[in-house]
Computed example of a mutant assay.
Amino acid sequence: MLDRYQVKATFFEIGRNIEKHPEIVKMIVARGEELANHSYSYKSLLPSRSRRNII
């Protein structure tokens, strides 16, 4: 979709996921997209039941 409309994006990545999938980070950077830090790990502050009620 980004290529179709010639749009660049910013990807907020979680450090733990970057370590697991460095190839994705390399692809993001090679495409000229922006990479931003979301944190090293992320834990939702909402209980799983509450998430269903948000949508």
Rank of each mutant, 00 (worst) to 15 (best):
E19G: 14
S48H: 10
E33C: 02
E33H: 15
S41R: 13
L46V: 08
L46C: 09
E23L: 04
R49N: 10
M1S: 14
Y42E: 07
K8C: 01
Y42S: 06
H21K: 05
N53K: 10
I14H: 02
L45Q: 11
P47F: 06
R31Q: 08
F12C: 02
E23D: 06
N53R: 13
Y40L: 12
R52N: 13
E19M: 04
I24V: 15
Q6A: 13
S41G: 12
L46E: 08
L45N: 11
E34H: 10
A9H: 08
E33S: 00
S41K: 11
M27K: 13
N53F: 12
E23S: 02
A9R: 08
S48Q: 09
A9C: 12
Y40E: 15
R49K: 10
R16I: 10
P22M: 01
L2D: 08
H38Q: 14
N53P: 04
K20R: 08
H38T: 07
N53W: 14
R51G: 00
Y40S: 06
L45P: 01
I14L: 00
Y40D: 15
I18V: 15
G32D: 03
A30C: 02
A36L: 09
F11H: 08
P22Y: 02
N17W: 00
N53Y: 09
S44I: 02
A30N: 13
I14D: 01
G15E: 02
L2N: 09
G15A: 01
V25D: 14
I18G: 07
T10W: 04
N17C: 01
S39D: 09
S48C: 06
V7L: 15
P22C: 03
N37M: 05
T10P: 04
L35I: 06
E34S: 10
V7F: 13
E34D: 13
A36E: 12
K26I: 00
I54S: 00
E23A: 05
H21L: 09
E34Q: 11
E13F: 11
N37I: 06
V7I: 15
L35G: 00
F11G: 04
R4P: 03
I28E: 06
H21F: 12
K20S: 07
Y5Q: 05
Y5L: 09
A30G: 02
